[in-house]
């Protein structure tokens, strides 16, 4: 009873006040969100529609006698190169990030961070040329050594004489994704609550133990996020790989010529492609799109799985 009359007496109370600023911001945020979704959907639709002819076409007319047989080796090349890049770059990036955030003097740390950030400003064509002209020839002795000493492992089965191999491309990719992983990791490491660092130190942790106990676990979701950004970049990287690699059919041997990646394949063949060949390349692009999407979902899942333990609660 009293509630009813109360409500009747102050009808305006239950309506939240809508300020013009809030309305504008709400609208802008909503619009940008929808735009992103629309663009994403547009890209997906374009890829599916353009790639569709491949699925219905006579396998004989396709490059490798079937879309699967065509795209699988490319997927393998792409994923192998990106994963090697990620595996090589992540520890180095985390190391640099820790150095900057916890070991170096502030001034030294800032300059190191600046240099690493500069790396991100180098165009990928330049990385490609550097990998081709500088890195590849210098990798040849190492590849020869690997072949001689570890040749019984299939991936080191035979060595290239030019060094223009998937391994070289992977290493260049590693350098290219280093800055993004480093800067994301550095930011999260710097945000480690002082309280937790002191908790570890007060237990008698050495600096490294403190980092292992407090900094790394706290920063892990961020490192994973940075790594996935890096992986995304490596998966999609075109120019560097196209320049460095002398592409060929798929081979497990990573230190010999051969192999290719989806982006490089598209970049090298797109200009002259038409008709079914074009659809085939776009189909490969669709596959790359799906892989990248899957990687991102996986990253989210990994981060969310430990959300209880993130300290955000």
């Amino acid at each position: 009873m009293s509630m009813t009359s109360d409500r009747g007496a102050r009808p305006g109370r239950r309506r939240t006040v809508r300020r013009p600023g809030d309305i504008t911001f709400h609208g802008a945020a909503l619009a940008s969100g929808l735009t992103i979704l629309a663009i994403l959907a547009g890209v997906a639709i374009f890829l599916v529609v353009e790639a569709a002819p491949v699925l219905t076409a006579d396998p004989e007319e396709l490059t490798a006698g079937g879309f699967g047989r065509y795209v699988l080796p490319l997927i393998a090349g792409t994923v192998i190169a990106s994963v090697i890049a990620m595996v090589v770059a992540t520890p180095v990036a985390v190391g640099i990030a820790l150095f900057i955030s916890h070991y170096a003097h502030r001034r030294v740390g800032t300059s190191v961070g600046f240099v690493v950030d500069l790396l991100a400003a180098v165009p990928s064509v330049v990385f490609g040329m550097w990998g081709w002209q500088v890195l590849a020839p210098r990798m040849v002795p190492l590849y020869r050594w690997l072949e001689a000493n570890l040749g019984f492992i299939p991936v080191f089965g035979s060595a290239s004489s030019t060094g223009r191999t998937l391994m070289t491309a992977s290493l260049v990719l590693a350098v290219m994704i280093l800055p993004i992983i480093t800067s994301v990791s550095r930011e999260v490491f710097l945000q480690t609550p002082r309280l937790h660092e002191e908790a570890a130190l007060a237990l008698g942790a050495t600096k490294w133990e403190m980092i292992r106990t407090a900094v790394l676990p706290f920063g892990m979701p961020g490192v994973i996020g940075g790594t996935m950004l890096g992986l995304g970049r490596a998966l999609g990287e075109t120019m560097a790989v196209a320049i460095i690699l002398s592409p060929g059919v798929f081979t497990w041997v990573l230190i010999d010529s051969g192999n290719s990646t989806i982006p490089a394949e598209i970049a090298l063949n797109f200009p002259e492609a038409s008709g079914l060949r074009l659809s085939e390349l776009i189909g490969a692009g669709l596959v790359l799109f799906l892989i990248t999407l899957a990687v991102n979902l996986l990253a989210r899942w990994v981060v969310a799985r430990r959300a209880d333990f993130s300290g955000a609660n």
């Binding site: 937790h196 908790a199 106990t213 333990f309 993130s310």
Partner: peptide, 11 residues
């Protein structure tokens, strides 16, 4: 410490 500081990432 003044503020309880269990490690958030640990059980």
């Amino acid at each position: 410490f003044q503020r309880p500081n269990p490690f958030p990432t640990m059980s």
